[in-house]
């Protein structure tokens, strides 16, 4: 039961995007279409999974003082692996995500989890934690990007919605991203409070 908890907490209670508000740069920059958002989510989940497991494996060998550089090296390795594989097997996605693939390395979620969780916990639990956080990040990205793509471009997964309104370009551009996440966090806060009572 407790193991399950490590997995589930990332999905909602400690959702990295909506609850802890971390890893925002990619969340906002790539959420212009659902395809991009989903691809980024999966790539980040892969990196989280790999780095969390490895950090947890070396946690007893690495001295306290040089732990951060070590974690960074491990994370950067997984980011590069993800980057190379995406370029080889998903060239279109890799191109539309562009520089935001290497930027996963500075995604605060990844280093945050390494420091806060997997540097203290055994590999299996770290794996569950990474999966939960990664999927939590992915669903948040998919939600934000569906809203932006539907409102800003009149499409969903690239299919036209035939909505009969002129999609406001605003939603695809930078301000739309900030507005979407601001309003979403506000609404989620409201419901969490209501349910809490």
């Amino acid at each position: 039961m407790k193991l399950m908890g490590e997995f589930v907490k990332g999905l909602w209670r400690e959702n990295p995007t909506f609850r802890i508000v971390l890893g925002l740069c990619p969340t906002l920059a790539v959420s212009t279409s659902v395809g991009n958002g989903f691809g980024m989510g999966i790539a980040a989940t892969f990196v989280l999974l790999g780095s969390n497991i490895f950090v947890s494996m070396v946690r007893n060998i690495v001295p306290e003082k040089v732990r951060i550089p070590c974690y960074i090296v491990i994370i950067a390795t997984f980011v590069t692996i993800a980057d190379l594989f995406m370029r080889a097997y998903a060239p279109l996605l890799s191109r539309s995500l562009g520089m935001f693939v290497p930027l996963i390395v500075v995604n605060c979620i990844v280093l945050g989890r390494a420091e806060a969780f997997s540097s203290k916990e055994p590999p299996f639990r770290s794996m569950l934690d990474a999966l939960g956080m990664g999927l939590g990040f992915t669903w948040a990205l998919v939600l934000i990007s569906s809203i932006r793509e539907a409102l800003g471009n009149g499409t969903l997964f690239g299919n036209s919605l035939h909505s009969g309104f002129q999609p406001p370009l605003f939603m695809i551009l930078a301000p739309g991203a900030l507005l979407t996440i601001g309003v979403l966090i506000g609404i989620l806060n409201y419901f969490t409070k209501k349910m809490g009572k």
Partner: peptide, 12 residues
Amino acid sequence: VPITFIIASLMS
């Protein structure tokens, strides 16, 4: 946080 995002949106 939410209001900060909304202001950032207006600034953007």
